[in-house]
Design a protein around this nucleic acid. Structure first.
Lengths: 231, 231
DNA sequence: GCAAAAGTGTTCTGGATACACCCATGA
DNA sequence: TCATGGGTGTATCCAGAACACTTTTGC
């Protein structure tokens, strides 16, 4: 203990960056280059610096790994510190943050990092036979659960799509996030207040073209969880 | 930074112990004896020790302040660390935990603590003119919001009542937690699957006695938030 | 014309809301 | 017998589920 009466503990931020690719829910992972868990997959993370807010640490982690600097939807998930042995090097508690981005936002990696970083399929990571570092499997499962819950109440699904999208696209996103199929007519009624027709059309194959929509900004759905848009 | 590559930061747990007394939502508060914020009200809290889980620190805080040792419903709320200046003595991040207990559980304070600790009315604490320590006002507001949300989805309201209760009592609890009045007939329908009639009656005044109920254990409502029952 | 997927209107239904009423007690 | 609060049934309304159908394209 120091004079302030506190033990000092290492604080880390783990980042869950979700996206959809090939109609699958994916999450950004890194391959660990050092012990412990060398060679295994892990969530990207950084140590929180002395003079840095938690959200800023999360933001910095995102930039280091992906080069993304623009504003992004960011939400604190949970703080994990129950297993004092999670990091053999010493006591670490980790605050997990979650974000959703459209796959296109991450093209060429302009991150400073040399480490291997890529999107991995969430279902595969959560399979019983997969082995991840630390308690990251549990954290990912918790993040996916949060997404499922919030997709039903809020508009988080839109964060995973580009500005313009079609309703079949939007429905697919909802289905992937919720993990179940939806009825087209009912789905459209449920989201009709959240979208605005742009008048454009988009041709996709040997069938009727779909209308192109944008998200209406006038949503007042109240969030259950605290959330932050880091600018 | 030490050799593990982490800055060390002081980690604290703040405890939000809610109860209902005199038909008001109250929360356990302490009066600070030292700077900063000497003399002002604050949430009870402890520093997290090196070899201690977060939930254990919360549990220890509860015991030190109230003497309560039995299992209790405990839920992690949020981790606050955005304002690096919240504690002038240095960087502190605080993990907040929330619990609900029946007022009767806390009779004579058998806690080790000499400090003044008591239940304060939440509405008063949140009033614009009230001044609290650190960012505790925001934390309390967040905790109350969480209670409001979870009361609608889950069975947390029951944690605030003793084993046996009447339906008018239960309804009052819901009304206080939700912050609005409910229609008797509809309320009863909404909770009928969660309670079981004991056959007992309870006389309360110059009117028909009310039936005494207990909570049915067979609830399978899924929780949205992570929660823990600490044993 | 036909397959394929986009797009839309109508019915059904279960849960929440609103309303109306009866019951048991003390004074 | 009356005031008070406990207790219960029925009608109404609305959102979501289910169903049925039309439209537009490429081949």
């Amino acid at each position: 203990m120091d004079k302030s009466g506190h033990d000092k503990i290492a604080v880390a931020v783990d980042f869950l960056l979700f996206t959809i690719e090939d109609d699958r829910l994916k999450i950004l992972m890194v391959r660990r280059e050092q012990e412990p868990f060398q060679g295994l997959l892990a969530l990207p993370g950084v140590a929180v610096a002395q003079e840095e807010t938690l959200a800023h640490a999360a933001r910095r982690c995102l930039e280091e790994e992906t080069g993304i600097t623009e504003p992004i939807y960011l939400e604190q998930l949970y703080t994990w510190g129950d297993d004092c042995r999670r990091d053999p090097r010493g006591r670490v508690i980790s605050v997990s943050y979650m974000a959703l981005i459209p796959r296109e936002k991450l093209t060429e990696k302009s991150g400073k990092r040399v480490t291997e970083v890529f999107f991995a399929e969430v279902d595969q990571l959560l399979a019983p036979e997969s082995q991840l570092s630390f308690d990251h499997k549990e954290i990912i499962a918790y993040g996916r659960e949060r997404i499922r819950n919030k997709t039903a109440y809020t508009d988080i699904a839109f964060h995973i799509l580009p500005e313009e999208f079609t309703l079949p696209q939007l429905q697919k996103v909802y289905e992937i996030l919720l993990g179940k199929e939806l009825y087209k007519a009912n789905f459209r009624k449920s989201i009709q207040d959240m979208v605005a027709d742009t008048g454009k059309l988009r041709k996709e194959g040997a069938h009727r073209p779909s209308k192109v929509y944008v998200r209406k900004s006038s949503l007042k759905k109240q969030m259950i969880e605290r959330e932050e848009i880091v600018l």
